[in-house]
Amino acid sequence: MNPFEMVIGIVLIVTIGSVVRSLLGLRGDHKGNEYAVHDRASDDRLVEEIRRLRDEVKVLKERQAVIERITVEKESSLEREIERLRDQ
């Protein structure tokens, strides 16, 4: 076998392996050479989790705004009460 045939053989083997992996739904793990089955359901779960976390952050920001408003109102009402007591 000459070097040209060997290179063609290696390229052919790698190409066939890539095609078979894609047909079986396998994808490479970037942390190693392990392969995992690509699970569409896990992607859907991740999207749902992201959506849920965004909604939770939105609710928490609204609650923080309410707490800030209450705090400011209490401070201003406390100042008014102090001024009222001074005026007496």
Rank of each mutant, 00 (worst) to 15 (best):
I82K: 07
R52F: 09
V37K: 05
E68C: 02
L24F: 08
D39G: 02
Y35R: 04
E81K: 15
H38L: 07
L26I: 01
D29A: 01
V47F: 12
K61N: 06
S77V: 07
R27Q: 02
S77A: 14
R80F: 12
E34C: 03
S18P: 03
D43R: 01
L23H: 14
N33A: 04
R54M: 04
K61F: 15
F4K: 09
K61Q: 11
V57P: 01
S77T: 15
I13N: 10
V37E: 11
I10E: 08
L12C: 14
V57K: 00
D55I: 04
R40S: 02
F4L: 11
D39V: 03
R69M: 06
R54I: 04
S77C: 02
L24M: 07
I16F: 15
F4T: 09
E48G: 01
E83Q: 12
I67M: 04
G28I: 10
I16L: 11
E68D: 15
V14W: 14
E83M: 07
I70M: 05
A41P: 06
D87K: 15
G28T: 11
V20L: 02
G9M: 09
K61R: 15
F4V: 10
V7A: 10
V37P: 01
K61D: 09
I67T: 04
D55P: 00
H30W: 08
R52I: 08
R84Y: 10
E73H: 07
P3F: 08
K58L: 01
E5H: 12
L60C: 00
D29P: 00
L23M: 10
V57I: 05
V72E: 14
R27P: 01
V57D: 06
R63V: 02
R40V: 10
F4H: 07
G25L: 01
E34N: 05
I50V: 09
A36G: 06
E56G: 00
G9T: 14
M1Q: 11
I10F: 11
V11T: 11
S76D: 11
A36R: 09
I10L: 07
I13A: 14
V20K: 02
R54C: 02
R86H: 14
S77Q: 15
V59T: 09
R54F: 11
I67R: 05
D87P: 05
E56I: 00
G17R: 08
R63I: 03
M6Y: 10
D43Q: 04
I70Y: 13
I16S: 07
A41R: 06
V59N: 01
L23P: 04
G25M: 02
G28K: 08
K58F: 12
R63T: 05
P3S: 07
M6Q: 12
E5Y: 09
R21N: 05
Q88N: 11
V72A: 05
V57H: 04
I70L: 06
E56L: 05
N33T: 08
Q64S: 05
L85R: 12
Q88V: 15
E75R: 13
V11D: 09
I13G: 06
R52W: 09
N33R: 05
V72Q: 13
S18N: 14
V47W: 15
V72N: 07
S22V: 09
V59I: 06
E79H: 08
N2F: 07
A65E: 15
R45C: 00
T71F: 14
E81F: 13
